[in-house]
């Protein structure tokens, strides 16, 4: 697994801090060329992974990468599925079953699945899930996708429902069909790790918020630290900067001080932020960091109030 992963929230108008900033970013990146420009900067800086939502706009970005294999040698994509709003809006408009119909490849397949009635429910569900995964993966055909993630809204919904067998179905399908490992994004990392182990997914890849102020770390920061330090899994830290609530050096020092954290995913909408964040991660990931004040600061309790 690569140490530094480039994320995509900034490209699709997602900002956990400010609606205004989110809109400004949506405008800035509405042309694919502006996204590609930043991907190229990331690639030139040595970043080899783009961790991206299966947003409709990924189709043309994937086309671009496929069309320029020499420019993107060794470049990998970690798709994160699904883009949940697409489904949520469809449910609002068409109801639960109506929405499902819209996203399955052809209506006949759907009707065939439902024709058998209740007795087939078990088999149907897995078949439906596979069809949905395949639909989400269509854009990525021919590209390197060694890890495929389940987005947090879906992971955490299934986890809350206690429907943990679904994680196994997901992992099995992406392994069988795409020769990929499953990854899971969550806001409830310790609980998810228990669930994944319970269905035999050992040493799982879990991407979770890991940041100094405990932002969206359910179960609490201490439990996260203990889980990371003592249990067998491959953590990827996201929301390291807590949407800008923590100064970059302090934020990255906190994560890098936890040696078991494999990777860090971050987004950036400017060349300078991208390069500076990458440089900080490289610097603070050195095997024997000097015990400089930033690392110590990282473990002190900072103010939670951002003004």
């Amino acid at each position: 697994m690569e140490r530094v992963l480039f994320g995509d929230n900034q490209f699709f108008g997602i900002n956990h801090m400010s609606e205004e900033k989110a809109r400004a970013q949506a405008m800035r990146f509405q042309d694919d060329r502006s996204i590609i420009e930043l991907l190229d900067i990331a690639y030139a800086a040595g970043i080899r992974v783009f961790m991206c939502t299966t947003h409709a706009r990924m189709a043309s970005l994937c086309d671009h990468i496929r069309a320029h294999p020499e420019r993107y040698a060794g470049f990998q994509l970690y798709p994160c599925m699904p883009y949940a709003h697409k489904y949520a809006d469809a449910v609002t408009e068409h109801g639960m079953i109506g929405a499902l119909k819209r996203f399955l490849p052809e209506e006949r397949a759907f009707n065939a699945l439902f024709k058998g009635g209740m007795a087939l429910a078990t088999r149907d569900l897995e078949a439906i899930a596979q069809l949905l995964i395949d639909a989400e993966m269509k854009s990525f055909a021919g590209l390197e996708t060694p890890i495929i993630f389940l987005q947090n809204v879906v992971t955490d919904l299934l986890l809350g429902l206690g429907f943990v067998q679904a994680f196994r179905m997901f992992a099995d399908h992406v392994e069988r069909k795409y020769k990929a490992e499953a990854g899971f994004i969550t806001m409830n990392m310790p609980r998810l790790l228990d669930a994944l182990e319970s269905v035999g997914i050992d040493n799982p890849i879990i991407c979770a918020n890991i940041n100094k102020i405990g932002f969206r770390m359910c179960g609490g920061k201490e439990l996260y630290e203990k889980t990371i330090a003592t249990r067998q899994f491959r953590p990827i830290a996201m929301s390291v900067l807590a949407s800008g609530a923590i100064p970059p050096r302090e934020a990255i020092a906190y994560v890098c001080a936890q040696k078991q954290i494999r990777s860090i995913v971050f987004g950036a909408s400017s060349r300078s932020t991208l390069l500076e964040t990458k440089r900080l991660i490289d610097e603070l990931s050195q095997p024997t960091p000097s015990p400089d004040s930033a690392v110590e600061d990282a473990f002190s309790t900072g103010p939670r109030h951002v003004a």
Partner: peptide
Amino acid sequence: VYSAGLADG
């Protein structure tokens, strides 16, 4: 003030 800085876990 940002919700991210205010929200209780």
